[in-house]
Design a protein around this nucleic acid. Structure first.
Lengths: 237, 237
DNA sequence: GCAAAAGTGTTTTGCGTACACCCATGC
DNA sequence: GCATGGGTGTACGCAAAACACTTTTGC
């Protein structure tokens, strides 16, 4: 903040005790891809006001953790997941967004691979919901979710983030289904393949699909290498 | 937040008193356009640790105001400006970002028209600095500023926000200078004009520049109307 | 042999980019 | 008349979009 003067935070606290009536939380929109649908992980709300509603995974921020670390902790605690993709989206702080009092929340979205990590769903009631069939959400979580979906849609055009949602090896069809699910639209197969190969994100896994009732497709994996050869340089300028 | 159970905020507060050692602020990156340079409004820091450094305009969030309202209040209080363009950018919350204690801050950027509003600079030491010649900044404000510049650069390609930085009537040359200052690059004049007219953001003000030592250019103003008139529809078909 | 999806190329169109000359005004 | 910036059009290359047929496998 810009107006701090020469005081300790404790002094500020006592002089501005009102300001410390604000609680600070983090909420996570956790996306997964399952049965050709984009899913979100939700928790059954335990607030009386929101009985039968669901909510995003969230928690208060600890005083001894960086803000950007909090969502990693929450995911680890609730799902056992580590090393996931996470990105900050926005912060929501309307006065009345939480019925119990003033809570400002910073929202992150996460992309995880549902199949690889069998979630150890704890005693909490956790469940996946397709974004097209969302239950009633508590708080302002519906608005938050829509913001995250928009952000994700913008992101996948330019950045190779979708691979976080897929198993290591995948077919082009699966990848296209995923893009279609996120963008909520149909894509032309030939143009999609052309564009993806141009992006230089894919590497041939030298394997084929197994046990499909039709001609098996090739499998690919994400080319993590950031060493984009000459192409990148020619694109600049 | 997602894990609230049936408690009042006061109960939560007493049980989690540690969490309420976090202060919550808002910082504003206020952009102006002056002498063909993108400028930022800064305040001389009054923290001893940051003597001779400058900082963004910020303040603690009040318990009785929506988060998104706080930056409007801050701008009003410090500069007298009302009805400005403001957009939330991101929230910064590293443990040690503020020397006096734990402060999480949500950052907004603002675009204002320097000439129209003669700022009533109060007793605070406020000053404009070109983004190319920034002084030493306090806290993590340099990082915050860079994030905001990046956001602004992305934004002006798609959205008509730059007009907030200009007087009501302006020449195409001024507009191009502004784009060049924000993007930190040179643009081709003919292509720039073509693109801007295609965007359908401009309307002929039926006036010319005055007192310029060369052929005067036409003045335009921003076409606020989102009602793209018949042209679009009649041209289709 | 039939169903189902894989794999593949060409054409068209629009957009971004590069580029040079005449024009209107103040001095 | 000269310096300064205003105003305009064309050609090229690339990328997006539209579009149909053959191939491979399981059953």
């Amino acid at each position: 903040m810009g107006t701090a003067n020469q005081k300790t935070i404790q002094q500020i606290q006592s002089e501005n005790s009102d300001f410390f009536r604000i609680a600070f939380s983090v909420d996570c929109v956790i996306f997964g891809f399952h049965k050709n649908e984009l899913n979100v992980l939700l928790l059954k709300s335990d607030l009386e006001e929101f009985k039968d509603k669901w909510s995003l995974l969230g928690d208060l921020v600890r005083t001894d953790e960086n803000l950007d670390d909090a969502p990693y902790r929450i995911l680890q605690e609730r799902t056992g997941l580590k090393d996931v993709f996470l990105e900050q989206v926005s912060t929501f702080g309307d006065i009345d967004r939480h019925p119990a009092g003033r809570v400002i929340t910073t929202v992150y979205y996460s992309l995880i691979n549902v199949k690889d990590h069998l979630l150890r769903l704890q005693h909490h009631e956790l469940s996946w919901f397709p974004v097209t069939k969302m239950p009633q959400l508590a708080f302002d979580h519906y608005k938050i979710l829509q913001t995250c979906i928009k952000k994700l849609q913008d992101k996948i055009d330019k950045e190779p983030v979708v691979f976080n949602l897929l198993p290591e090896k995948f077919s082009l069809r699966e990848l296209q289904n995923l893009y279609e699910a996120i963008l909520d639209t149909k894509l032309d197969r030939r143009n999609f393949r052309k564009k993806l190969f141009l992006m230089d994100w894919l590497e041939d896994a030298k394997e084929m699909e197994q046990d499909v009732p039709h001609r098996p497709g090739k499998l690919y994996h994400y080319r993590a290498s950031t060493t984009k050869p000459a192409t990148a340089q020619t694109l600049v300028q």
